[in-house]
Design a protein around this nucleic acid. Structure first.
Lengths: 328, 328
DNA sequence: ACACACATTGCAAACGATGCCAACATGGCC
DNA sequence: GGCCATGTTGGCATCGTTTGCAATGTGTGT
């Protein structure tokens, strides 16, 4: 079908090995290389990925695994990662696990076989399991810390602290936290952030949410109202928007009667009504940085084996219209 | 590293070719096959994709191209396609074009080289260009019709008709349509739908939007108010939600003062305030059906060359809270 | 008992690119 | 003028799998 390296070699009057070297950066006479490059261009030569992979053992692709492709939070991470991967001319496999641990395990195994490295976003498996699976090849984790693996995470404690300070300044003294899914690493971190933000004179009361979704938020809203809290911080924006929706239905005015703070700053946060005050995390940057770390790891494969340090990206509170002074 | 076909052959006391046939469904003695299968399992044998691809010329993967990975509308199509692909055990490459024609061209070319078939969602290129690019291999188009290519589309005319009937029944006689991006095939179809829905006594006035985004909707809202229309149909939900947002800011009540209808029924449509009446299209089903058509094409490659017929999926109007009776 | 069909298996040649090694030419140096 | 270092190049084996073809063995019909 398309031109092979042999075709180019013949057309340029050299051997296939020379073409390989010329195109691959080996030692070749400048004039020869120029000719070969020109001829290759004319013939529209594209190296056959499979043949190259077979001999080098590298696939030239990376894999990205997220819990849910439909979740806008992950979409932005994907965008970041795929633009970085494109810059490195690496195709990227994207797959989702439907938030399921078994599917995650399976997906990691299958991606492993077809890629040189993996980006695991918000993985659900246990530390041990992930460490074992990650041993199969270069891996970078996003939104999670796994001992021994490089990670890209956001500074949850700082984000939470900013939110509490903001609420404190508005006079709130009793704040509800709507949790994330059970066992979620991110949720754990945010609870720690809440616990460590003492000295503000704010009391925290927890309200459970089973899933990080709009519907869980709707459910949680009624629970929040029974706690006597004057403000609520939600595990993520989707939950916060669910809370907002239910509050509106019940005639509770936001922020007049209750202040609401989300987390992540997905696009929807500035589209809902009222516009959501939220703790923004640099999603796209996390994706691109994770991809970047992975690519660098691949480049120096076998060279210095110093671990990539984990990266902590800043969270920033974005104040919009869903938070306000507490009314007496 | 991992076991090769030769390892299995040696362990089973047969030749590699026999192993290949046993695992690949060729004519092999039942007892022999049983042994080979068992041994392969024990050794954890996984055929090397690259080697197979090299000889068969098939990559065993498919590609999916969308204009924007962050757009929730496309997310759902991706989910549908990838779940179908997973059922066929085919990994799927996902890439986006940033709504850019040049990038689209480039992405198609590069995906072509690494996949057996392509799913093009809402491609922006011209018919001629797409037909040319599609000639490179099996292709299924979603949300667009390109002469000579199998396609999966939704019944825009019916959706629009349902919306107009609904609005007509509520007493509206002057309806604004906020358009999609210039040159968009979907937009064209929706305009045709509007034009052909005569006999309802409804006058249509067009309001331009440059991009299918929230911000365009915000912009369009003010324009809509100058037209004297009592209802507005937006090219998609994102625009409709932008309209909603701007109307709220200007104190225009929905649906009391103005009715708003979206298109697509993305998840956000039932999360915004008021909940959006919208023309739902079966996004996930479109994705899975498109993937299914592509897989079937790949299976009978070279066999009967009858073209896959295009598929038209029904649109249904979902009435929520953003539409109501026209007030005198 | 012989020929022939058929089932089962092994052999060897690919597929396209890479990279080791040897071959060759050239120029500088003693 | 001969030797060696250096720069360039071609030859060839190789990666793991599939597949056409030939070889072997078994059973059947006459």
């Amino acid at each position: 079908m398309s031109a092979t390296i042999t075709d180019v070699a013949r057309a340029a009057g050299v051997s296939p090995s020379t073409v390989s070297r010329a195109l691959g950066g080996g030692p070749v006479n400048d004039a020869t290389r120029a000719t070969i490059v020109r001829v290759a261009e004319e013939l529209g030569y594209r190296p056959n990925r499979a043949a190259r992979e077979l001999i080098t053992g590298r696939t030239g692709t990376i894999g990205l695994l997220v819990p849910d492709l439909g979740n806008p939070y992950f979409s932005e991470i994907i965008k970041g990662a795929s633009s970085r991967a494109r810059a490195g001319a690496l195709p990227i496999f994207v797959s989702d696990t439907d938030e399921d641990v078994a599917r995650e395990r399976e997906a990691i195994a299958s991606l492993r076989a077809t890629t040189d490295g993996l980006l695991l976003v918000s993985p659900r498996g246990s530390d041990e399991e992930l460490a074992a699976l990650a041993a199969g090849g270069p891996t970078v984790v996003v939104n999670r810390e796994v001992p021994g693996l490089p990670a890209v995470i956001s500074d949850a404690a700082s984000g939470i602290a900013q939110a509490l300070q903001h609420l404190g300044a508005l006079g709130h003294t009793r704040v509800a936290y709507v949790t994330g899914p059970h066992g979620s690493w991110s949720d754990h971190r945010r609870r720690e952030g809440l616990a460590s933000a003492t000295g503000l004179g704010i009391e925290i009361v927890h309200v459970p949410a089973a899933t990080p979704t709009f519907h869980s938020g709707v459910l949680a809203a009624d629970l929040v109202l029974t706690t006597g809290a004057t403000a609520v911080i939600a595990f993520n924006d989707l939950i916060a928007i669910g809370v907002l929706d239910r509050l509106a239905a019940r005639g509770v005015r936001v922020p007049h009667d209750l202040s609401v703070v989300g987390h992540d700053d997905i696009a929807m946060a500035s589209m809902c009504s009222p516009h959501l005050t939220t703790i923004a995390v640099p999603k796209e940057r996390m994706g691109s940085m994770a991809a970047d770390m992975l690519l660098r790891t691949l480049d120096r494969r076998g060279a210095s084996d110093d671990r990539d340090p984990s990266v902590l990206l800043p969270s920033t509170l974005i104040v919009r219209d869903s938070t306000g002074e507490v009314k007496a």
